[in-house]
Amino acid sequence: MPHPLLILAIAALLLCLTAILIWPRKGLLALWQNNRRLSSRVLGEDALKHIHKSELHGRRPTVESIAGALQISTNETAVLLDTLQNQQLLELRAGDIHLTPDGRDSALHIIRAHRLWERYLADETGFGAAEWHDQAEHLEHHLTPAELDALEAQLNYPTHDPHGDPIPSARGDMIGHGGKPLTALPVDQPGQIVHLEDEPSIVYAQLVAEGLHVGMPVRVTERTPERVRFWSSGNEHVLAPIVAGNVSVVPVPAEAETAVGAGYETLADIPLGSRAEVVALSPACRGAERRRFLDLGILPGTVIQAEMRSPSGDPTAYRIRGALIALRRAQAKLIKVKREST
């Protein structure tokens, strides 16, 4: 019989080979799929999307910027742009790249697909915020307009994706978020997050890790070239200005802010035996979770009493409209409350 070490070595080798083959994202299979993804159609669509976004932001799309966005060489980009021009999706005027009406439609379709899919992932699945973008980036090229219309209907015609970006309607209408960068919000002026830029993903991951989401109230306390310090939902955050610039906010009147800002607590802060009145459900409470809360009668105005805590520390049981319902800490944090004075 062979030596056990030899057998173990062979097994380890087989395991490695399998891993190399099917490892998510970096495995050969994934790379092969990725390669297929980078077909000329997909690249073309990505290029159109890039040009459209550049135009929106008032930047001038160049061969270099497209090459950078698509991560291909400038030569390949030139060939790609040539093809798109032949398809009459874009035109070159005075050395500038412009979309034709068809090209704009095409770009809008891709953006619509991307943002609708993100909305779908956020509302109807359990995927976390860090995963939405990558999945949508892949799927946006595979959804037909008819599928999008069905998806849009299923999601009840959302107007914005979970990052706060407007979703173009089938006719191409969009409602902008109208925010300005957090770095431009005056110190002590209350504001509300309306948009989180999801590219580049490293910066977005940092925003997600900070627990920021669209709809959160903010108040900047310090702004220097090195950092932006601000309060949001009872926590203090410090971000580098380049990161904070990816957060868009709208200023809100001071009195509106008091409703959710000052003296603001979540259900998780309520000590056992105390009662609190629900002020609002956090916008981060979406989809199935939100509907469940509403069904249980967790609504603005509902009085909730914290009754007992699990001996393991979590969850906590709350008396909600006569029933004893256990909620986890992370869930209780989604419910903004005003403590009842006893």
């Binding site: 069904d295 249980l296 009668g297 409209r321 006569g322 029933a323």
Partner: peptide
């Protein structure tokens, strides 16, 4: 009857 409000929903 003990949780009438929720049941009336």
């Amino acid at each position: 009857a003990t949780r009438l409000e929720r049941n009336l929903n």
